[in-house]
């Protein structure tokens, strides 16, 4: 049982950032703007918030600092995504190009600014955010060790974001309009919805979530931030596609990817898995092969938003 608890706890390290960032990507793409800048936005969100923690950790610690850092990450993620929004919505630029530009820009900015402030590019931080056991809930048998021990506040934030995202997308007027703009913006416009506004909203939400995702990714992973999120922004894109742009499926996809990564990384410390003799390449490959297979079989009725990637032109009918 102890091993199962361990695997579940480790899976969270992988899955929660993927979940949050993929949900961010979902809002952007559902509004009709392809956002491959997720990686860059993650880097930027992580950069500003880790810098914030680095500067503030002498005066405060623990969950309060974490919550403030999350706010910093969210705001900075929104700001950087504004660039993408402006280029791809206002200027009708190619959305892939502007996304790539952000991916290249943000690590450079992070290194440059970190050097200016503290001479070195790695931003160190002390991890005071880990929750060894949630009071009361951590003592529940089975469920306690599974979900409420050796965890982070951000894990619950991830699930909260999932629930709110699903509600916003399917149960609100805003969500309906957003989806309409991603499917058929001309039709949406014809009934008086401001497509530009909705798309700005979609991209900004994706920036907010990807920024948070960057912070969530870095905290349990390293003792410093070194201007990279190791390609997890792109992995989140794969999760988004594997999850067919739907919150529930994104959750499944994120946990499938996370579980596979956790097993591939941890199997050498688990006697049962080490004894099976399956090379870890197998575990590493599985999520990607599964994505390819699923895409192959579902491509006919793939539910990608129809207008994703197409700049909205009012005059084109």
């Amino acid at each position: 049982m102890k091993i199962i608890y361990f695997i579940v706890q480790q899976t969270m390290t992988f899955s929660i950032p993927l979940l949050i960032v993929a949900l961010g990507g979902m809002f952007s793409e559902r509004s009709g703007v392809v956002n491959i800048a997720l990686e860059g936005i993650m880097v930027f969100g992580a950069f500003t918030s880790i810098l914030f923690i680095n500067q503030m950790q002498d005066t405060m610690q623990g969950q309060l600092l974490l919550i403030l850092a999350i706010a910093v990450a969210a705001v900075s993620g929104m700001l950087i995504s504004l660039l993408h929004a402006y280029a791809s919505i206002h200027m009708k630029a190619d959305q892939v190009i502007s996304g790539t530009a952000i991916n290249m820009l943000t690590p450079a900015v992070a290194i440059y600014v970190a050097r200016m402030i503290q001479q070195i590019q790695q931003i160190g931080f002390v991890n005071t955010f880990r929750i060894v056991s949630v009071p009361l809930l951590g003592n529940i048998p089975v469920l306690g060790p599974l979900f409420f021990q050796n965890t982070y506040l951000t894990t619950y934030l991830g699930f909260a974001i999932l629930i709110v995202s699903a509600l916003v997308l399917y149960r609100t007027r805003f969500g309906l309009r957003l989806r309409a703009c991603g499917e058929h913006p001309q039709a949406a416009d014809s009934v008086g919805i401001n497509v530009y506004k909705m798309r700005y909203a979609g991209v900004l939400i994706s920036g907010l979530l990807a920024g948070i995702g960057g912070l969530v990714f870095v905290i349990p992973t390293s003792t410093n931030f070194n201007a990279t999120v190791a390609g997890y922004g792109f992995l989140a894109l794969a999760v988004l596609i594997f999850g067919q742009w739907k919150p529930g499926r994104i959750l499944l996809a994120a946990f499938f990817f996370g579980l596979m990564q956790a097993i591939a990384s941890a199997y050498s410390g688990i006697p049962f898995l080490a004894g099976l003799g399956i090379p870890n390449y197998f575990y590493r490959m599985t999520p990607f092969i599964a994505t390819l297979v699923v895409l192959t079989f579902t491509s006919k009725k793939s539910r990608a938003p129809k207008a994703a990637g197409v700049p909205y032109d009012k005059s084109a009918r």
Partner: peptide, 28 residues
């Protein structure tokens, strides 16, 4: 040579299995 959750999880699983000290030989 990068900081990744994979490296962290591998180390965590070893520590979980009783390893007491790891010689980490690879930059970040």
């Amino acid at each position: 040579f990068d900081s990744t959750p994979e490296a962290k999880t591998t180390a965590a699983s070893w520590y979980n299995a009783g390893i007491e000290v790891i010689f980490a030989c690879g930059g970040a």
